[in-house]
Design a protein around this nucleic acid. Structure first.
Lengths: 108, 108
DNA sequence: TCCTTACATCAATTTTATTTGATGTAACTT
DNA sequence: AAGTTACATCAAATAAAATTGATGTAAGGA
């Protein structure tokens, strides 16, 4: 009846695979730059974002998908446009305050 | 004479490449597991670590090198042995308190 | 309806990362 | 000195991720 709650997280209890995916999404210069831009601009559509980071549209969509799949960003469709914004809560749950200060312009 | 200190970190001021490397090192299940083990055991030599994570020695050395190059772990030679330990300060400077709680057994 | 814009997705290629088994080296042991 | 243990590193093979250009689709405008 009582669920055991381990006091110490070991190899058996931590879901490493889940975090691998999050960190993989973060482990790219361009994607970090996208996060930084979304943090400062709030909400940006793909067509506005592409010139900001000097990237062809298909490439940008590829990277946005990786960030989206890792739940680091959010997507909202508005007519023909797709607006992307940062999942601030998720990013904050992963990164130290120090890093949030660096990456999120409104971070500290 | 006065050095400009930007109040907001933009694409121009953040060293994304530096963080790409750190996150790349974190973006692997096995390497996260190594971090977790080092956090709980303190200091472990390669020969003891290998059976813990069920990995051949050359493969383990490869992953340890990636973590070492990212400065997430430290290495100390003791005779024939190479002892590895976590660079707790560095890891804490990257990960949220919440993640430290999860990955570092003595994290919270 | 036809044209244009905004975007995702696809297939082919290129680049990077990982795995594997072998080899090299240095320090201990006998 | 010869054998053994602990480890790094290397080259070859494999696997995964990223890039590119093309194609498809849906919405909005003329």
């Amino acid at each position: 009846m009582n669920k055991e709650i381990p006091l110490i997280n070991t190899s058996e209890t931590v879901d490493f695979k889940r975090y691998e995916k999050k960190f993989k999404a973060l482990s790219d210069q361009k994607r970090l730059q996208i996060i930084n831009i979304l943090a400062s601009k709030g909400t940006v559509c793909v067509c506005d974002l592409a010139p900001m980071i000097d990237m062809p549209q298909s490439k940008l969509s590829y990277h946005l998908k990786i960030l989206l799949d890792a739940e680091l960003i959010k997507k909202e469709t508005r007519g023909t446009w797709n607006d992307y914004s940062l999942n601030v809560k998720e990013v904050r749950s992963l990164l130290s305050d120090q890093l949030c200060c660096i990456f999120l312009p409104s971070g500290c």
